[in-house]
């Protein structure tokens, strides 16, 4: 550990503002991408499941069963 104390670590020798802003902004941008990624994954899966249930329901409907 290079720093003497945690306060020192936050201080970064007067450059704390710059260092932590840089890390904070980068983290925020990366997290935004991760959220978008998870959201898209869920959305796609939910959409496909819904479509597949809908088609099953249509197939199993009594009117369609008699005709097929």
């Amino acid at each position: 550990m290079y720093f003497e104390s945690f306060a020192d670590f936050l201080e970064m020798g007067r450059h704390g503002f710059y260092v932590w802003t840089a890390y904070g902004v980068s983290l925020a941008l990366i997290v935004t991408n991760l959220v978008a990624m998870v959201h898209r994954r869920r959305q796609v899966r939910a959409e496909i499941r819904r479509a597949s249930r809908r088609e099953e329901a249509v197939e199993n409907h009594p009117r369609n069963e008699q005709s097929s």
Binding site: G13, R14, H15, Y18, A22, Y23
Partner: peptide, 27 residues
């Protein structure tokens, strides 16, 4: 990042601000 932020020595000219490089250069 933890190594770069907390354990690496400071730069003799730029002090601690150089620690931004641990994101900047890889990105």
């Amino acid at each position: 990042l933890v190594w770069g932020l907390a354990f690496a020595p400071p730069d003799y000219q730029q002090g601690n601000s150089y620690r931004i490089i641990f994101i900047h250069v890889p990105a």
